[in-house]
Amino acid sequence: IINNLKLIREKKKISQSELAALLEVSRQTINGIEKNKYNPSLQLALKIAYYLNTPLEDIFQW
């Protein structure tokens, strides 16, 4: 999986903590996703895309 979450999140000036709060997950979860240590569920990936107002395929590429 190619993961552009960190790049997109930083472009939008959103911290890991802010995104985690919006998604109701821990900051460690966001960190793990960004470091490719954790693959989000489809539901979480869709929520990330929604809150970042970015197409899912721009954030994650399988």
Score class of each variant (00 low, 15 high):
34 E>V: 03
49 A>I: 02
5 L>T: 02
44 L>Y: 02
27 R>L: 15
55 P>F: 05
3 N>F: 03
24 E>F: 11
20 A>M: 04
24 E>L: 11
48 I>K: 00
31 N>W: 10
39 N>L: 15
14 I>C: 05
60 F>W: 10
31 N>D: 15
50 Y>P: 00
20 A>Y: 02
18 E>P: 04
32 G>I: 10
39 N>R: 15
60 F>I: 03
34 E>R: 01
3 N>V: 06
33 I>L: 09
18 E>I: 07
10 E>K: 11
26 S>N: 11
58 D>R: 07
21 A>F: 10
7 L>F: 13
36 N>T: 06
8 I>Q: 05
23 L>Q: 00
52 L>P: 00
20 A>N: 01
34 E>C: 03
31 N>C: 09
43 Q>P: 12
22 L>I: 11
55 P>I: 04
54 T>I: 07
33 I>R: 01
26 S>F: 04
10 E>A: 08
58 D>M: 10
35 K>C: 12
9 R>T: 02
35 K>E: 15
10 E>D: 09
6 K>T: 07
58 D>Q: 12
4 N>L: 05
18 E>G: 09
42 L>V: 08
41 S>C: 06
45 A>K: 11
38 Y>M: 12
57 E>F: 07
42 L>N: 05
48 I>G: 00
13 K>I: 05
9 R>A: 02
36 N>L: 10
38 Y>P: 03
21 A>V: 08
7 L>K: 14
51 Y>D: 00
50 Y>W: 11
8 I>C: 07
1 I>M: 14
45 A>R: 08
45 A>M: 15
44 L>K: 02
59 I>C: 02
28 Q>P: 07
56 L>T: 04
31 N>V: 14
10 E>F: 07
28 Q>N: 12
57 E>K: 11
41 S>Q: 05
37 K>M: 15
3 N>W: 03
33 I>D: 01
25 V>M: 05
34 E>Y: 02
57 E>H: 11
17 S>I: 12
6 K>Q: 11
28 Q>G: 14
33 I>V: 06
39 N>W: 15
12 K>M: 10
44 L>S: 02
46 L>P: 00
20 A>H: 04
62 W>A: 08
48 I>Q: 00
42 L>H: 08
16 Q>D: 04
24 E>R: 14
5 L>C: 04
17 S>W: 12
10 E>Q: 10
11 K>H: 10
43 Q>H: 13
4 N>M: 06
56 L>D: 01
19 L>P: 00
29 T>A: 10
14 I>R: 04
59 I>R: 00
40 P>T: 05
6 K>G: 08
25 V>S: 03
15 S>H: 05
38 Y>F: 14
55 P>M: 06
16 Q>L: 12
6 K>W: 05
62 W>F: 13
48 I>M: 08
6 K>C: 06
25 V>W: 02
49 A>L: 02
29 T>L: 15
31 N>P: 02
13 K>M: 14
61 Q>V: 09
13 K>T: 07
